[in-house]
Amino acid sequence: MPAPSSLSEEELLQSGFRYAYALTHHHHDAEDLVQTAWLKLHQRYSEVKTKALFFTTIRNLYIDQYRRRKRVWFISLTSEHEHLSASVDTGGENTKVAIDQMLSNLRDIEREALFLHIVEGYSANEIATLTGRPRGTVLSLIHRSKKKLAALGVAD
């Protein structure tokens, strides 16, 4: 089954996984989401035609399955403090853990907007098209989430 010409099948899967991870902020949920979306598209079109379609399918599945489930995370205060105190400046794995912790403080729609803008390089207009939100809302989400992260220590 050929992947779109610009990306290999594996690159597309990895890209979809990162987007799913931005939405769920949970490794196994993101894996399940990508697999379900991939199979769904193959079932319907025998291939994954475009990255945008793949992202849209992942997003729709996420809305159907995960957000409605209203997952509640229990994190011990001690570990949270330990993670936060690990700080951004220490670099390497600690940095990743700290960013992970800080991203979990963002809403899924904020993480999504930030990911699409910063990592995927989508413009506000493109994000608005993909997510079905007004461009102004998208810009506001990006701005607000950057501000939140800056306040948490992931500063520019």
């Binding site: 996984f17 993101a30 990743k96 992970d100 991203l103 990911f115 990592v119």
Partner: peptide
């Protein structure tokens, strides 16, 4: 953020 998300791999 780029480094963080690029490190997430299936």
């Amino acid at each position: 953020l780029n480094n963080y998300y690029r490190s997430k791999r299936l």
